[in-house]
């Protein structure tokens, strides 16, 4: 673990409730410069919610999140934009703008936030796309490329401004094993070589153990286990062992899928829907 006392992210006693259900219940951890923190946990355990709090798109019920030493939970939109220039985010689906080409998507942050000339920007875009193995795809529209490619374009876009910190939401899901390795190596190169810090939410255990310098496992809204990859691998906690080896039997209760889980939290069942379901049930 490369700790040099320089905390990039400090999360303290973070609580988030939807109604009276606590999805995050007193989460606390630090991420230091140059580290790669992998956050893992079953579907619906609050990983994505935690990530959304760290990028400032959700406000916590209680607790604090500090990025680069600045408290972001109470910040106004315009203040938070200043912090956001210093990090990149890769969304699970890539979240590319469908109306722009691949090249324009990667160029977007450069056009918006720098005074570089179009030629310089074109060079940077070429270089970033080359890093993710997509040379020559600049002029295609996002709906002309595959899901895995979109994700890699999303990564190139997240890296366009050479951020100090990268958040990735499942960067390797949907990629083939070779591309997974390419993306992992890129993350490693950036964190080792350029002292970028990475926070990666992942289900993919192979990839997680390959890139992580530290790992956190979430469950029931709190941290179940935390440590270096070796510590996690040798953890005596049966939940951790069940998760990293992907066994169906074990102490982790069968969760609802993430979508159902969200519905449960956000929407009260409507009476007529309940009636319809009963109707189907009776006849099936």
């Amino acid at each position: 673990m490369s700790v040099n006392g320089d905390s990039i992210i400090e999360v303290d006693q973070l609580v988030r409730r939807f109604g009276d259900r606590a999805v995050l219940d007193g989460i606390a951890f630090n991420v230091h410069r140059g580290e790669t923190l992998v956050i893992m946990g079953g579907s619906g355990c609050g990983k994505s919610t935690l990530l959304r709090h760290m990028i400032g798109s959700m406000k916590p019920t209680a607790g604090s999140v500090k990025l680069f030493g600045e408290e972001i939970t109470g910040m106004k939109e315009r203040e938070i934009e200043r912090v956001r220039l210093r990090f990149g985010m890769l969304f699970q689906s890539g979240a590319l703008l469908a109306s722009l080409t691949v090249g324009e998507n990667v160029a977007l942050p450069l056009f918006q936030h720098t005074k570089k000339s179009p030629d310089e920007i074109e060079q940077i875009v070429k270089r970033k796309l080359e890093m993710v193995g997509l040379t020559g795809f600049e002029d295609l529209k996002p709906d002309e490329i595959s899901g895995g490619m979109k994700k890699r374009v999303g990564l190139a876009r997240a890296l366009a401004l050479d951020p100090e910190l990268l958040f990735s939401d499942e960067p390797t899901s949907g990629l083939d094993p070779i591309m997974t390795a390419v993306v992992d190596e890129l993350t490693l190169k950036l964190t080792k070589g350029s002292h970028m810090t990475a926070v990666v939410v992942s289900h993919d255990m192979t990839s997680a153990f390959r890139i992580a310098t530290r790992m956190i496992m979430l469950g029931h809204g709190s941290i179940v286990a935390e440590g270096t990859p070796d510590e996690i691998r040798n953890s005596l906690n049966p939940e951790v062992q069940q998760f990293i080896h992907g066994r169906a039997d074990g102490p982790i209760p069968l969760n609802l899928s993430q979508e159902e889980h969200k519905d449960h939290q956000l929407v009260r069942p409507r009476p007529f829907l309940g009636g319809r379901f009963r109707f189907h049930h009776k006849h099936s």
Binding site: R84, S93, L96, L97
Partner: peptide, 17 residues
């Protein structure tokens, strides 16, 4: 459509209003 496909959120995270 941009809202439901997370494009708006992506813009916000890229500090583009």
């Amino acid at each position: 459509t941009m809202k439901v496909s997370e494009e708006i959120e992506a813009l916000e995270v890229m500090a583009i209003n």
